[in-house]
């Protein structure tokens, strides 16, 4: 990151900080400190996660006893797990188990789905996996579950209805799946924020890339885990046939949402510079899109 860019992002942060206290609570990428990104490969989703979280200091570094945890996977589509349209249920369940083992008072899981929510929850396998692991599936199809929040620093979406589970939780963990996206080119950690927002159509209509970057302002995730066990390089984000799915068995973990997405773009063979919302999110000070400022740890599970 050039000095000027850094100063600019610092200035943006200074503007954002008073309004977005949650974002400002833990300023990312302080001078001289690199964003740590852990990439793990060659293993089942649970094994990948155990290896990766150990590198980040274990789940205890993120979840303290008695805290309320919300896990936000991608459950957007009424599709079976092997189509790679939703986050792997094994990973979500492992997460819930570890959070509960770490003493979390409750673990809530939800997504504002694109298809019928009951079918998505059921057919993605996530509802069953989470319930068995001791977590709680939260409904998100009802406007009553959302509260209005404003972020004046946002470029386009200055107010939004955000799901109350996100606003009320002590710990927010973002667990997206890596897919191609027709409009935004890549969907990973930042794009997963569309599932917190009630009015997705507003985001589509009012500069989608800017709105994706803006959405991340509403609540900083404590940890991002990008499920890249199965990825969808074509026909995303829904996928048409199993030909759209590649099983590469990767996982990317980071507290820096922008850095995690930059690596995710590379995994999908897309230039991060082509994905406009990554740069816009970096501009908001949500993380770094400069690979030289990342500390990438590569591990085999």
């Amino acid at each position: 990151m050039k000095r000027r860019t850094f100063l600019m992002s610092g200035a943006a942060l200074a503007v954002t900080a008073p309004a977005a206290s949650l974002v400002a609570a833990e300023p990312p990428a302080a001078a001289g400190v690199k964003s740590k990104v852990v990439a793990v490969r060659d293993g089942e989703p649970e094994a990948l996660f155990r290896k990766g979280i150990a590198e980040l200091g274990g789940i205890a570094a993120f979840v303290r006893p008695g805290q309320k945890v919300v896990v936000k996977p991608n459950i957007g589509w009424d599709r079976a797990p092997e189509y790679g349209a939703n986050t792997n249920p094994l990973l979500v369940a492992e997460f819930v188990r570890q959070c509960i083992a770490a003493g979390a008072s409750q673990v809530e899981v939800f997504d504002h789905t694109c298809n019928n929510w009951e079918r998505c929850y059921r057919n993605s396998g996530i509802a069953e996996a989470v319930t068995q692991a001791g977590g709680k599936m939260v409904e998100a199809h009802d406007r009553e579950s959302y509260r209005e929040v404003s972020r004046p620093a946002a470029g386009s979406m200055k107010t939004a209805l955000i799901h109350r589970a996100i606003l009320d939780a002590d710990v927010f963990i973002n667990v997206p799946i890596l897919k191609h996206h027709g409009g935004a080119k890549v969907t990973a950690a930042l794009k997963n924020f569309m599932g917190l927002v009630w009015d997705r159509q507003y985001m589509h209509a009012h500069n989608l890339d800017q709105c994706i970057a803006d959405a991340a302002l509403y609540r900083k995730p404590d940890l991002n885990v990008i499920d890249a066990y199965r990825i969808m390089p074509t026909n995303g984000p829904r996928g048409v046939t199993l030909n759209d799915v590649r099983t590469v068995k990767y996982q990317i973990l980071s507290t820096d949402i922008v850095a995690a997405d930059v690596l995710a773009c590379k995994l999908l063979r897309t230039k991060p510079a082509d994905v406009r919302y990554v740069a816009l999110a970096a501009k908001h000070g949500l993380g770094t899109d400069d690979e030289s400022r990342m500390d990438v740890v590569r591990l085999e599970a």
Binding site: C114, H181, G182, G183, A184, R200, Q201, H204, A205, H206, N207, L208, D209, N235, P237, R238, V240
Partner: peptide, 16 residues
């Protein structure tokens, strides 16, 4: 703005 809402939802790949 590459809105993409329609293409995103199309289940058969007719809209890209």
């Amino acid at each position: 703005n590459a809105c993409g809402a329609c293409a995103e939802h199309c289940p058969t790949g007719a809209l890209r």
